[in-house]
């Protein structure tokens, strides 16, 4: 592959769109969390859980934003392990917040 040439398989574009889809899914689940707390009333634990969940959402947005920015190169560098780990940790934090909100 020569630098600057467009990949005929549009791999960077597909990866960028995959990040966008994932961000969108994360946003939908974060909105469900918001709805959960609004429905149940703002208890102390629920508020803390919601705040944590929104932080996780922001963290995921940040990782996704940086990664999408890096997709502009003709041959993007591989995803870094800490970014993959951060994305997964944000997802896990959201799940833990959801579990807290059940009670």
């Amino acid at each position: 592959m020569t630098g600057g040439a467009r990949d005929p398989g549009l791999q960077p574009e597909r990866t960028r769109l995959a990040w966008r889809r994932t961000t969108l899914s994360f946003t939908v689940v974060a909105l469900l969390a918001l709805r959960q707390v609004l429905r149940a009333g703002l208890g102390a634990a629920g508020t803390v859980a919601l705040a944590l969940g929104l932080l996780a959402w922001l963290g995921f947005l940040r990782v996704a934003h940086r990664r999408v920015g890096g997709m502009g190169a003709a041959e993007p560098a591989p995803l870094m392990v800490r970014h993959a780990l951060a994305a997964a940790v944000c997802t896990v934090v959201l799940a833990v917040c959801a579990a807290v909100m059940l009670f």
Binding site: M1, P12, R14, T15, R21, V29, L32, A77, A95, A98
Partner: peptide
């Protein structure tokens, strides 16, 4: 790099699966 990107998309697909399961957890409750 294309193999790495394909691996990354598979990773993201699994993350979306995880998000769907979490959303399902919220949905059951709501």
């Amino acid at each position: 790099y294309r193999f790495s990107l394909a691996n990354e998309r598979t990773f993201l697909a699994w993350i979306r699966t995880a998000l769907a399961l979490i959303g399902g957890g919220f949905a059951v409750d709501q």
